[in-house]
């Protein structure tokens, strides 16, 4: 900050530093261009949410209609169903999918046999590399009413075969649990990294004081990863309404629609399949804004409660 006192001189220094690194600016130029074109231009284009977009008139030439598309969305039959499903899946996922990787990491960290520890890690990371299409395909195969393994077991135990994929009440659970299966290992990596930073001397001292293994986890390991937990919780909260389109879309069918129709699939259906660009853009913008507000508020709460926050 001291440099502020020499205004003109510091400007000259800055200019010289920029000139000296001219090739670094050249290097980053394509990246800046990429973000302008593929990220910032669509933000400019989102104004069609307030217009009646005609492809031949372009974004600027299309007439303004104010909040009409938003009103139509808020008053539509779908609005509450979409909000309920999107929020329901998002919260269910946060509630179940968020704590499991933490428990897994704490548990893996306690394993004394290093080879078993590595084995558990490598096995649980593997499903992360399966594509969403393959994951959903496997869900269909395992849950199939006619010949899925799960239904074979149910029948073997004397139960009635269940048509999992077509009954709305099963949708959210299948969505969340298959996600946990795929990602719990991968998501535990970051906590394991934080746990590896815990000073072993803390554990030695606690042992001398007679603390049990469980007490040491609760009072040493858990506090050590709280900052990581908070940051990831903020990031996840900001995504609560952006339920992944791909997976929902792939699992969706006309029979489970009541539970599976979410904002993202509605945007796809009305916008790209139904060519109602402006209406769908309005729905998408509503979604983005809610997410952004969520992120900022959770970040603010976290900053007030303890020292950790995103910014």
């Amino acid at each position: 900050m001291k440099r502020r006192h020499f205004g003109a001189q510091s400007t000259a220094v800055t200019v010289r530093r920029i000139l000296k690194n001219w090739d670094l600016y050249l290097l980053i130029l394509p990246v800046v261009a990429y973000f302008l074109v593929f990220h910032y231009y669509p933000m400019y284009g989102v104004q069609i949410a307030f217009k009646n977009f005609f492809a031949n008139r372009g974004i600027l030439g299309s007439p303004w209609v104010g909040l009409r598309h938003f009103e139509r969305f808020f008053n539509s039959y779908y609005f509450w169903r979409l909000l309920r499903n999107t929020l329901g899946i998002g919260l269910y996922e946060l509630l179940v999918g968020f704590p499991i990787p933490i428990i897994l990491a704490l548990s893996i960290n306690e394993v004394a046999h290093k080879r078993f520890q590595r084995f558990v890690q490598n096995v649980t990371y593997a499903p992360h590399f399966l594509s969403t299409v393959v994951l959903v395909g496997m869900v269909f195969m395992f849950l199939s009413r006619t010949n899925g393994v799960v239904n074979n077991v149910i029948e073997f135990l004397g139960g009635e075969r269940i048509s999992f994929m077509t009954e709305p009440k099963w949708f959210k659970t299948i969505y969340v649990l298959s996600g946990v299966w795929k990602n719990m290992g991968w998501n535990s990596i970051i906590y394991l990294a934080a746990l590896s930073g815990v000073d072993p001397e803390l554990h030695e001292a606690a042992k001398v004081d007679g603390a049990s293994q469980f007490q040491r986890i609760r009072h040493i390991n858990l506090p050590a990863i709280i900052p990581t937990i908070v940051i990831l919780l903020i990031l996840n909260a900001g995504r609560v309404l952006s339920v992944g389109f791909e997976k929902v879309y792939l699992m969706q069918n006309s029979l489970n629609m009541e539970a599976s129709d979410v904002i993202a699939t509605h945007v796809y259906r009305t916008g790209l399949l139904g060519a109602q660009y402006s209406y769908a853009a309005a729905v998408g913008l509503f979604n983005s804004i809610v997410n952004f507000i969520m992120l900022i508020s959770v970040n603010r709460i976290a900053r007030r409660l303890n020292e950790t926050s995103l910014w």
Partner: peptide, 30 residues
């Protein structure tokens, strides 16, 4: 590079796109 003037601004410029986007439709039209 710590001697790269403007890296703070450019970082914000990129990170912002992680949290806010124009959405599917404007991207599709583009």
């Amino acid at each position: 590079r710590r001697d790269f003037v403007g890296r703070g601004v450019l970082t914000v410029f990129m990170v912002f796109t992680m949290f806010f986007s124009g959405g599917l439709i404007p991207t599709f039209i583009l």
